[in-house]
């Protein structure tokens, strides 16, 4: 199969370039990560992150034929050749397919992604009805792979100020949690022309999410709450 790989080694002094690679591999039942690891076994200078190889750790997000995906759950057979692989867009490239995720993590941290509840701690669990728990479905499953956020033009233009779809989905996960008491503060945190309202609902994030989550819908729900408390 034919691949075109984005290569960049900051120590070489060379500009980034696209490398054409041919690999003899049967695509049946194989994932893109298998192919990249086979290429790496031949040329160990190729650098990428990987860990769980089953789509739950979020390490190997990359841009494949123009779409952000997780290499480990992208079937090789689905891809048209030459398969063009680039690092995630909108984040600084460290080397080859490895980007500096810090701007993404910083936005994640900025929404205070932890449960806030100052009530006395009960001896057993805090009860939550299955209906209330169902509100978290589609929000808590995020694996922080950054496929969505780095597919969002609003994040490309304002990575320092716009929280991005992943961060906003997590913000919603805590706003929606019946056990969390900090909804007002969380909404205050997002009541800003940049942090939330850079989202124009173009839904690139929905298209990119390898876990099938819908950040745009969550953003819509946050907006509805902001409007509701104002009018």
């Amino acid at each position: 199969m034919k691949f075109r790989l984005y290569r960049y080694n900051p120590e070489s002094g060379k500009q980034p370039y696209m490398q054409d690679v041919e690999l003899d591999i049967d695509p049946a039942g194989r994932m893109l990560l298998d192919a990249l690891l086979a290429i790496k076994a031949r040329d160990e200078t190729l650098s990428l992150r990987r860990s769980c190889r089953e789509g739950v750790c979020g390490s190997d997000a990359m841009n494949v034929n123009g779409r952000n995906r997780l290499a480990c759950i992208t079937p090789l057979g689905e891809l048209s050749e030459p398969i063009e692989i680039r690092p995630l867009p909108g984040l600084p490239v460290i080397r080859d397919l490895i980007v500096d995720m810090e701007p993404f993590y910083r936005q994640y941290r900025s929404i205070k992604p932890w449960l806030i509840n100052d009530d006395p701690v009960p001896e057993t669990e805090r009860p939550q009805s299955p209906e209330d728990r169902a509100l978290l479905d589609g929000a808590y499953e995020c694996i922080l792979c950054a496929c969505c956020t780095t597919a969002c033009p609003s994040f490309w233009w304002n990575p320092d100020k716009f929280v991005g779809p992943a961060g906003l989905l997590q913000a919603y996960r805590f706003i929606a949690d019946s056990r969390d008491e900090a909804m007002a503060a969380r909404l205050d945190n997002l009541e800003d022309p940049y942090r939330l309202y850079r989202c124009r609902g173009i839904m690139n994030c929905v298209d990119a999410c390898p876990k099938g989550l819908n950040p745009t819908e969550a953003i819509g729900r946050i907006k509805a709450l902001l409007v509701k408390r104002r009018v």
């Binding site: 932890w114 701690v121 669990e125 009860p127 009805s129 728990r133 949690d177």
Partner: peptide, 15 residues
């Protein structure tokens, strides 16, 4: 659970 782990729930609201 108090830290926020989103356990699935039984009908009576327990883990």
């Amino acid at each position: 659970e108090h830290m926020g782990l989103p356990f699935s729930r039984l009908d009576n609201g327990r883990i």
